[in-house]
Simulated scan of single mutants.
Amino acid sequence: MIVICTGNADVRFDRNYYANEHFALAKSCWEAHGLQSAEAFFPHAEGGSWISMGVYTFSSEQGVHDALASPATQHVMDDVKNFTDATVVLRSLFTEF
């Protein structure tokens, strides 16, 4: 699953918290559903609006659906305010082709 946050230069985003604290929380909440790893990427493009890309690797697509449907997901979502006021604009699953 890939989660992308967008914004401009005025948007608060704590990269360290995101990559360390938030990912640790996500792992504790979603590991039972097959979360194997979480990675942070911070794209840069002139005039671009993407602030971060979080790549959450699960053992199966069903695991993603189960994780997002679990009550623990509320803890992950409630934590977002601790590292950003950016808008999450895209949450996507990617399949091989």
Rank of each mutant, 00 (worst) to 15 (best):
H75L: 11
Y56L: 15
F83T: 01
P71K: 05
F58H: 05
F97L: 14
A86R: 01
S28Y: 03
E96M: 01
H65F: 07
Q36R: 15
T95R: 07
A9M: 10
S37M: 11
W30C: 14
A38W: 07
F58G: 02
Q74H: 07
N20R: 13
T73C: 09
D10R: 12
T87V: 12
G48T: 01
V55I: 13
S59E: 12
Y56S: 14
C5I: 02
E46S: 13
F13I: 01
S28P: 07
Q74S: 12
V89N: 11
V55K: 10
D79E: 06
R12V: 15
A19Q: 14
A38R: 09
D79T: 05
T6P: 02
D79G: 03
F97G: 08
H75E: 11
V89A: 14
A69Q: 10
E31R: 11
S59I: 11
D78A: 13
V89Y: 13
F94N: 02
T57I: 10
S37T: 15
H75Q: 13
D66Q: 11
P71G: 04
A9S: 12
F58Y: 15
D10W: 09
V80F: 01
V11L: 02
A69Y: 02
T84E: 00
T87N: 12
A24P: 07
A26N: 01
Q62G: 13
H65I: 08
A24M: 09
D14F: 03
I4M: 13
A19K: 13
S52E: 03
S60W: 01
G7P: 06
T57L: 06
P71Y: 04
W50T: 13
G34A: 07
H22P: 09
E61M: 05
C5R: 03
G48N: 03
E31M: 08
F42K: 08
D78M: 06
A40R: 01
L25C: 02
D10A: 14
L35S: 04
T95I: 05
F58V: 11
F13G: 00
V89D: 14
F58N: 03
F42G: 01
R91N: 11
A45I: 14
A69E: 06
D66I: 00
F83G: 11
S92D: 02
A9Q: 10
H44I: 14
S28T: 15
E21D: 13
Y56G: 07
S37I: 10
N8K: 12
G63L: 00
G7Q: 05
M1L: 15
W50K: 11
T57K: 06
E46W: 04
Q74M: 10
A40W: 01
W30N: 06
E39P: 03
K27L: 11
S52D: 05
R15G: 10
V89C: 12
D85Q: 04
R91D: 06
N8T: 15
E46C: 05
S28D: 12
D78L: 05
V3M: 04
T57H: 10
T95G: 09
F23S: 11
F58E: 03
C29Y: 07
F13L: 13
D14H: 03
E31Q: 14
